[in-house]
Nucleic acid binder design. Sequence first.
DNA 1: CGCATATCCTGACTGC
DNA 2: TGCAGTCAGGATATGC
Length: 279
Amino acid sequence: MPELPEVETLRRDLERVAVGRRVVEVSVTGRRTVRRQPPSEFSEALTGRRIEGARRHGKYLWAPLDDRRALVVHLRMSGQLLHFAPGAAAPLAEHTHAVLRLDDGAELRFVDPRTFGELFVTGDLDPTGRPRPLASLGRDPLVDGIDPSRMRRMLAGRRTSLKAFLLDQHQLAGIGNLYADEVCFRARLRPDRRTDGLDARQAARLSRAVTEVLSEAVAARGSTLSDGRYLDLCGGPGGFQHRHAVYGRAGEPCPRCGMPVERSRVAGRSAHYCPSCQG
DNA sequence: CGCATATCCTGACTGC
DNA sequence: TGCAGTCAGGATATGC
Protein backbone atom coordinates (compact mmCIF):
# COMPACT_ATOMS: atom_id res chain seq x y z
CA MET A 1 0.00 0.00 0.00
CA PRO A 2 2.29 2.71 -1.14
CA GLU A 3 1.30 6.05 0.35
CA LEU A 4 2.96 9.47 0.24
CA PRO A 5 6.28 8.48 1.92
CA GLU A 6 6.75 5.43 -0.28
CA VAL A 7 5.93 7.34 -3.47
CA GLU A 8 8.24 10.19 -2.43
CA THR A 9 11.05 7.67 -1.88
CA LEU A 10 10.51 6.35 -5.41
CA ARG A 11 10.46 9.90 -6.76
CA ARG A 12 13.84 10.64 -5.21
CA ASP A 13 15.28 7.39 -6.53
CA LEU A 14 13.94 8.17 -10.02
CA GLU A 15 15.49 11.61 -9.91
CA ARG A 16 18.83 9.97 -9.26
CA VAL A 17 18.76 7.21 -11.89
CA ALA A 18 16.22 8.06 -14.59
CA VAL A 19 16.07 11.83 -15.06
CA GLY A 20 17.99 12.84 -18.17
CA ARG A 21 17.57 9.41 -19.73
CA ARG A 22 15.70 8.80 -22.94
CA VAL A 23 13.10 6.05 -23.31
CA VAL A 24 14.17 3.91 -26.26
CA GLU A 25 11.66 1.06 -26.09
CA VAL A 26 8.32 0.47 -24.38
CA SER A 27 6.57 -2.82 -23.82
CA VAL A 28 3.11 -3.07 -22.26
CA THR A 29 1.87 -6.58 -21.60
CA GLY A 30 -0.67 -5.99 -18.80
CA ARG A 31 -4.30 -5.84 -19.90
CA ARG A 32 -5.36 -3.22 -17.37
CA THR A 33 -2.17 -1.32 -16.63
CA VAL A 34 -2.65 1.26 -19.39
CA ARG A 35 -6.40 1.89 -19.47
CA ARG A 36 -6.96 5.60 -20.05
CA GLN A 37 -5.68 5.30 -23.59
CA PRO A 38 -4.83 2.48 -26.01
CA PRO A 39 -1.55 0.84 -24.97
CA SER A 40 -0.16 1.40 -28.47
CA GLU A 41 -0.81 5.14 -28.16
CA PHE A 42 0.90 5.11 -24.75
CA SER A 43 3.97 3.31 -26.11
CA GLU A 44 4.24 5.59 -29.13
CA ALA A 45 3.90 8.71 -26.98
CA LEU A 46 6.68 7.55 -24.68
CA THR A 47 9.19 6.08 -27.13
CA GLY A 48 12.02 8.47 -27.94
CA ARG A 49 11.12 10.93 -25.18
CA ARG A 50 13.60 12.25 -22.63
CA ILE A 51 12.64 12.11 -18.93
CA GLU A 52 13.06 15.65 -17.65
CA GLY A 53 12.10 15.32 -14.02
CA ALA A 54 10.34 13.36 -11.31
CA ARG A 55 7.42 14.95 -9.48
CA ARG A 56 4.77 13.83 -7.04
CA HIS A 57 1.41 14.92 -5.74
CA GLY A 58 -0.17 12.73 -3.09
CA LYS A 59 0.23 9.15 -4.22
CA TYR A 60 0.65 10.11 -7.89
CA LEU A 61 4.08 10.20 -9.46
CA TRP A 62 4.82 11.79 -12.80
CA ALA A 63 7.75 12.41 -15.08
CA PRO A 64 7.67 15.52 -17.29
CA LEU A 65 8.82 14.59 -20.80
CA ASP A 66 10.67 16.69 -23.38
CA ASP A 67 7.52 17.31 -25.45
CA ARG A 68 5.39 19.02 -22.79
CA ARG A 69 3.68 15.82 -21.90
CA ALA A 70 4.14 13.65 -18.81
CA LEU A 71 4.22 10.00 -17.86
CA VAL A 72 1.90 9.50 -14.87
CA VAL A 73 2.15 6.53 -12.48
CA HIS A 74 -0.14 5.37 -9.67
CA LEU A 75 0.81 2.21 -7.77
CA ARG A 76 -2.52 1.76 -6.01
CA MET A 77 -2.45 -1.35 -3.80
CA SER A 78 0.34 -3.57 -5.05
CA GLY A 79 2.24 -1.72 -7.75
CA GLN A 80 6.04 -1.65 -7.78
CA LEU A 81 8.34 0.43 -9.92
CA LEU A 82 11.76 -1.19 -10.21
CA HIS A 83 14.98 -0.05 -11.85
CA PHE A 84 17.43 -2.56 -13.27
CA ALA A 85 20.85 -1.11 -13.96
CA PRO A 86 22.51 -1.73 -17.33
CA GLY A 87 23.64 -5.33 -17.52
CA ALA A 88 21.80 -6.25 -14.32
CA ALA A 89 18.64 -7.35 -16.10
CA ALA A 90 17.13 -10.19 -14.09
CA PRO A 91 14.40 -12.42 -15.53
CA LEU A 92 11.02 -10.65 -15.61
CA ALA A 93 9.19 -11.15 -12.33
CA GLU A 94 5.67 -12.52 -12.40
CA HIS A 95 3.06 -9.76 -12.87
CA THR A 96 5.43 -7.50 -14.78
CA HIS A 97 3.01 -5.47 -16.89
CA ALA A 98 5.22 -2.83 -18.48
CA VAL A 99 8.90 -2.35 -19.24
CA LEU A 100 10.59 0.88 -20.31
CA ARG A 101 14.08 0.48 -21.72
CA LEU A 102 16.29 3.55 -21.28
CA ASP A 103 19.14 4.85 -23.43
CA ASP A 104 21.78 3.82 -20.88
CA GLY A 105 20.66 0.19 -21.13
CA ALA A 106 18.74 0.25 -17.84
CA GLU A 107 15.13 -0.85 -17.50
CA LEU A 108 12.21 0.51 -15.52
CA ARG A 109 9.69 -2.21 -14.81
CA PHE A 110 6.15 -1.91 -13.52
CA VAL A 111 5.11 -4.97 -11.49
CA ASP A 112 1.60 -5.18 -10.05
CA PRO A 113 -0.06 -8.45 -8.94
CA ARG A 114 -3.46 -6.94 -8.27
CA THR A 115 -3.47 -4.79 -11.39
CA PHE A 116 -5.12 -1.79 -9.70
CA GLY A 117 -2.16 0.40 -10.54
CA GLU A 118 -1.98 2.37 -13.76
CA LEU A 119 0.26 4.24 -16.17
CA PHE A 120 -0.70 6.89 -18.69
CA VAL A 121 0.81 9.67 -20.76
CA THR A 122 -0.94 13.01 -20.92
CA GLY A 123 -0.25 16.36 -22.53
CA ASP A 124 -2.98 18.00 -20.48
CA LEU A 125 -0.76 19.92 -18.05
CA ASP A 126 -1.50 23.08 -16.10
CA PRO A 127 0.91 26.07 -16.21
CA THR A 128 2.96 24.54 -13.38
CA GLY A 129 3.31 21.32 -15.33
CA ARG A 130 0.94 19.35 -13.15
CA PRO A 131 -1.27 16.88 -15.05
CA ARG A 132 -4.85 18.21 -15.11
CA PRO A 133 -6.31 14.74 -14.53
CA LEU A 134 -4.93 15.13 -10.99
CA ALA A 135 -6.51 18.54 -10.47
CA SER A 136 -9.17 17.31 -8.04
CA LEU A 137 -6.56 16.22 -5.49
CA GLY A 138 -6.29 18.25 -2.31
CA ARG A 139 -3.08 19.85 -1.07
CA ASP A 140 -0.03 17.69 -0.69
CA PRO A 141 1.05 18.09 2.95
CA LEU A 142 4.77 18.13 2.10
CA VAL A 143 4.81 19.76 -1.37
CA ASP A 144 2.24 22.47 -0.55
CA GLY A 145 2.44 22.44 3.25
CA ILE A 146 -0.28 22.44 5.85
CA ASP A 147 -0.65 24.81 8.77
CA PRO A 148 -2.94 24.94 11.83
CA SER A 149 -5.31 27.62 10.55
CA ARG A 150 -5.80 25.92 7.20
CA MET A 151 -6.27 22.60 8.94
CA ARG A 152 -8.90 24.10 11.19
CA ARG A 153 -10.81 25.50 8.23
CA MET A 154 -10.68 22.15 6.43
CA LEU A 155 -11.93 20.29 9.51
CA ALA A 156 -14.77 22.69 10.17
CA GLY A 157 -16.03 22.37 6.62
CA ARG A 158 -17.24 18.82 7.08
CA ARG A 159 -18.93 16.51 9.53
CA THR A 160 -17.22 13.17 9.32
CA SER A 161 -14.75 10.99 11.19
CA LEU A 162 -11.13 12.08 11.42
CA LYS A 163 -10.19 8.85 9.69
CA ALA A 164 -12.45 9.52 6.69
CA PHE A 165 -11.10 13.08 6.52
CA LEU A 166 -7.47 11.95 6.45
CA LEU A 167 -8.19 9.29 3.81
CA ASP A 168 -10.03 11.73 1.54
CA GLN A 169 -7.58 12.58 -1.25
CA HIS A 170 -9.64 15.65 -2.18
CA GLN A 171 -8.84 17.19 1.22
CA LEU A 172 -5.20 16.24 1.77
CA ALA A 173 -3.50 14.07 -0.84
CA GLY A 174 -1.17 11.24 0.06
CA ILE A 175 -2.41 9.73 3.32
CA GLY A 176 -3.65 6.13 3.24
CA ASN A 177 -4.84 3.77 5.93
CA LEU A 178 -1.46 3.19 7.56
CA TYR A 179 -0.40 6.83 7.93
CA ALA A 180 -3.94 7.92 8.88
CA ASP A 181 -3.64 5.75 12.01
CA GLU A 182 -0.10 6.89 12.77
CA VAL A 183 -1.11 10.54 12.35
CA CYS A 184 -4.09 10.13 14.70
CA PHE A 185 -1.86 8.54 17.31
CA ARG A 186 0.70 11.35 17.04
CA ALA A 187 -2.07 13.92 17.37
CA ARG A 188 -3.52 11.98 20.35
CA LEU A 189 -6.94 11.91 18.69
CA ARG A 190 -9.15 8.89 18.13
CA PRO A 191 -9.72 8.11 14.45
CA ASP A 192 -13.49 7.96 15.03
CA ARG A 193 -13.60 11.52 16.41
CA ARG A 194 -15.80 13.87 14.41
CA THR A 195 -13.84 16.57 12.61
CA ASP A 196 -16.28 19.36 13.46
CA GLY A 197 -15.86 18.73 17.18
CA LEU A 198 -12.15 19.54 17.20
CA ASP A 199 -10.93 22.82 18.71
CA ALA A 200 -8.09 25.05 17.51
CA ARG A 201 -5.58 23.35 19.76
CA GLN A 202 -6.47 19.90 18.44
CA ALA A 203 -6.43 21.09 14.83
CA ALA A 204 -2.95 22.46 15.40
CA ARG A 205 -1.85 19.15 16.87
CA LEU A 206 -3.27 17.32 13.86
CA SER A 207 -1.56 19.67 11.44
CA ARG A 208 1.79 19.11 13.15
CA ALA A 209 1.22 15.35 13.32
CA VAL A 210 0.58 15.12 9.57
CA THR A 211 3.79 16.98 8.74
CA GLU A 212 5.92 15.19 11.31
CA VAL A 213 4.78 11.63 10.65
CA LEU A 214 5.04 11.97 6.88
CA SER A 215 8.45 13.68 7.06
CA GLU A 216 9.83 11.06 9.41
CA ALA A 217 8.48 8.28 7.21
CA VAL A 218 10.09 9.85 4.14
CA ALA A 219 13.40 10.10 6.02
CA ALA A 220 13.10 6.39 6.83
CA ARG A 221 12.28 5.63 3.14
CA GLY A 222 8.73 4.49 3.81
CA SER A 223 7.16 1.41 5.34
CA THR A 224 7.67 -2.15 4.09
CA LEU A 225 5.18 -4.44 5.83
CA SER A 226 5.67 -8.16 6.34
CA ASP A 227 4.12 -8.88 2.94
CA GLY A 228 7.12 -7.11 1.38
CA ARG A 229 4.81 -5.44 -1.11
CA TYR A 230 6.44 -2.05 -1.06
CA LEU A 231 10.04 -1.86 -2.25
CA ASP A 232 12.03 1.15 -3.38
CA LEU A 233 13.20 1.67 -6.96
CA CYS A 234 16.18 -0.63 -6.49
CA GLY A 235 14.18 -3.33 -4.68
CA GLY A 236 15.18 -2.40 -1.12
CA PRO A 237 12.82 -2.22 1.85
CA GLY A 238 11.91 0.93 3.75
CA GLY A 239 12.58 1.37 7.46
CA PHE A 240 9.59 3.17 8.96
CA GLN A 241 7.73 -0.06 9.81
CA HIS A 242 10.00 -0.36 12.88
CA ARG A 243 8.64 2.95 14.15
CA HIS A 244 4.92 2.31 13.79
CA ALA A 245 3.19 3.14 17.05
CA VAL A 246 -0.21 1.57 16.36
CA TYR A 247 -0.67 0.36 12.77
CA GLY A 248 -0.64 -3.45 12.65
CA ARG A 249 0.04 -3.57 16.40
CA ALA A 250 -3.39 -4.54 17.79
CA GLY A 251 -3.01 -6.09 21.25
CA GLU A 252 0.57 -4.89 21.63
CA PRO A 253 1.43 -2.21 24.21
CA CYS A 254 1.06 1.44 23.28
CA PRO A 255 4.60 2.89 23.08
CA ARG A 256 3.48 5.87 25.13
CA CYS A 257 1.44 4.37 27.99
CA GLY A 258 1.63 0.58 27.64
CA MET A 259 -2.11 -0.01 27.24
CA PRO A 260 -2.93 -2.60 24.56
CA VAL A 261 -3.52 -1.07 21.14
CA GLU A 262 -7.10 -1.56 19.94
CA ARG A 263 -8.36 -2.28 16.50
CA SER A 264 -11.80 -1.43 15.17
CA ARG A 265 -13.51 -0.39 11.98
CA VAL A 266 -13.89 3.28 11.06
CA ALA A 267 -15.03 4.64 7.68
CA GLY A 268 -14.97 1.12 6.32
CA ARG A 269 -11.28 0.64 7.13
CA SER A 270 -9.35 -1.00 9.93
CA ALA A 271 -8.32 1.54 12.54
CA HIS A 272 -5.64 1.06 15.21
CA TYR A 273 -5.42 3.36 18.23
CA CYS A 274 -4.56 3.58 21.91
CA PRO A 275 -7.79 3.82 23.95
CA SER A 276 -5.94 5.68 26.71
CA CYS A 277 -3.71 8.19 24.87
CA GLN A 278 -6.14 9.11 22.11
CA GLY A 279 -9.25 11.00 23.11
C1' DC B 1 -24.09 15.77 2.12
C1' DG B 2 -21.83 11.53 4.14
C1' DC B 3 -21.87 6.96 4.64
C1' DA B 4 -22.00 2.00 3.36
C1' DT B 5 -21.42 -1.14 -0.20
C1' DA B 6 -19.75 -3.13 -4.45
C1' DT B 7 -16.09 -3.22 -7.84
C1' DC B 8 -11.51 -4.20 -9.59
C1' DC B 9 -7.73 -8.26 -8.14
C1' DT B 10 -4.24 -11.56 -6.02
C1' DG B 11 -1.93 -13.41 -2.12
C1' DA B 12 -1.84 -14.40 2.65
C1' DC B 13 -4.15 -16.26 6.08
C1' DT B 14 -7.99 -18.94 8.77
C1' DG B 15 -10.79 -22.79 9.80
C1' DC B 16 -12.41 -27.20 8.83
C1' DT C 1 -2.47 -31.44 3.06
C1' DG C 2 -5.84 -29.12 0.71
C1' DC C 3 -9.50 -26.30 -0.15
C1' DA C 4 -13.10 -22.78 0.48
C1' DG C 5 -13.83 -18.60 2.55
C1' DT C 6 -12.21 -14.12 4.36
C1' DC C 7 -9.45 -10.16 4.52
C1' DA C 8 -6.32 -6.51 3.00
C1' DG C 9 -7.17 -1.57 0.91
C1' DG C 10 -6.75 2.93 -3.27
C1' DA C 11 -9.94 4.93 -6.00
C1' DT C 12 -14.36 5.25 -8.05
C1' DA C 13 -19.34 4.44 -8.74
C1' DT C 14 -23.85 3.84 -6.93
C1' DG C 15 -27.60 3.66 -3.66
C1' DC C 16 -29.68 5.21 0.69
